[in-house]
Simulated scan of single mutants.
Amino acid sequence: MSPWRANRREPLSEPLWLEWLALGGLLVFGTWLLGVRGVWALLLHADPTGLTLVIVAVFACSTAWCGSRAKALQAQRQALEASLRPGSPGQGWAHDYWLACRQPGGDAATALEVLLEHSHGPHGTAWWVNGIQLKLGLLGKVIGFCILALNIGQLQSLDASQSSELLKSLTTGLGVALLTTMVGLVANILLGLQLTRLDRYADRLVADCQRHGLNQRPQHHQAGVP
């Protein structure tokens, strides 16, 4: 049995898009449940700076981007499988990579860099955004403690008449500090899981492009692919 026939039976496809849809469904359900329990109202009321809302908005937009990226990567995986069929004209990043490697005087290293830019390039910005969520949470922590320190510093004396005002300032400052940090950490963890899955999927896609490009080169010539 030829190496091509053995590889043809290998299950290449992974339901990355369906995995993200399942995760998205869980996130939507969790959002609805938190809203019913009044958690969102509590978070927004306890954070006068609005950083909690900013972190949630950044996470929602980033998660939507991960969904579109998962769909694009799965489409490229399907294009790779289609390009391995006999007589297929070829399409997608894998086919472009194979063509660049087979060109007279083609530079395989440059072709690989282009393939990596397609498969992993946008993820760098997404990881930066993921770090921004954590930094926004830490910024909220600093702001909360600043509010706490300023309110305490404005008190002339700590008598019984000012105890309620002191307690209110403590609650506001600590609420901002703790809530924004918590939301930033949770958003950072959830988005990090999605980006790690995308990176691993893209790693395998690149590895399969290289492996099949080496093994199937004669077969593609027989199929009439230049």
Rank of each mutant, 00 (worst) to 15 (best):
L193C: 15
W40V: 07
F59A: 12
E165G: 13
A100I: 06
Q91I: 09
L43Q: 08
S157T: 03
S68N: 09
L150D: 15
T110N: 04
S88A: 15
G30S: 15
Q76F: 01
L191E: 05
Q162E: 05
V129K: 07
T110K: 13
E113S: 04
T63E: 08
L136H: 03
W93Q: 01
V56E: 02
C146V: 13
G184V: 09
G124I: 09
L84W: 08
G24C: 08
P3N: 14
G121P: 09
A111W: 07
E19T: 06
L23N: 06
A6P: 02
G144I: 03
D159F: 06
C61Q: 11
H221R: 15
C209H: 01
L139N: 01
P3T: 13
G25D: 14
A46R: 14
A207Y: 00
V129D: 02
A160T: 10
L12C: 08
A82W: 11
R197F: 01
Q222N: 14
D47I: 05
T125H: 05
L12R: 11
L112C: 03
D107K: 08
L12A: 11
D96P: 01
L166R: 12
A64E: 07
A60E: 06
M182I: 14
E14I: 02
R5N: 00
F145M: 12
G140D: 05
L170S: 10
V36A: 12
W98Y: 04
H120D: 04
G175N: 00
G137D: 09
L191M: 14
A72T: 06
V58K: 06
G144V: 01
T172C: 06
G92W: 01
A160H: 04
R69E: 09
G25T: 13
L178N: 08
R102D: 13
Q133W: 05
C101T: 12
S169V: 11
A64C: 08
I143V: 11
E19D: 15
Q219A: 14
I152C: 00
E165Q: 15
L116K: 10
V56K: 02
L148T: 13
E117C: 05
A79M: 07
A6N: 14
L18W: 10
L73H: 00
V39W: 13
T172A: 11
G184E: 13
L195V: 04
N7V: 01
L138D: 10
H120P: 02
T31P: 03
A109N: 11
W98M: 02
G144K: 03
L134I: 04
V58F: 08
W128S: 12
T52E: 07
G67Q: 04
G30L: 15
S119A: 15
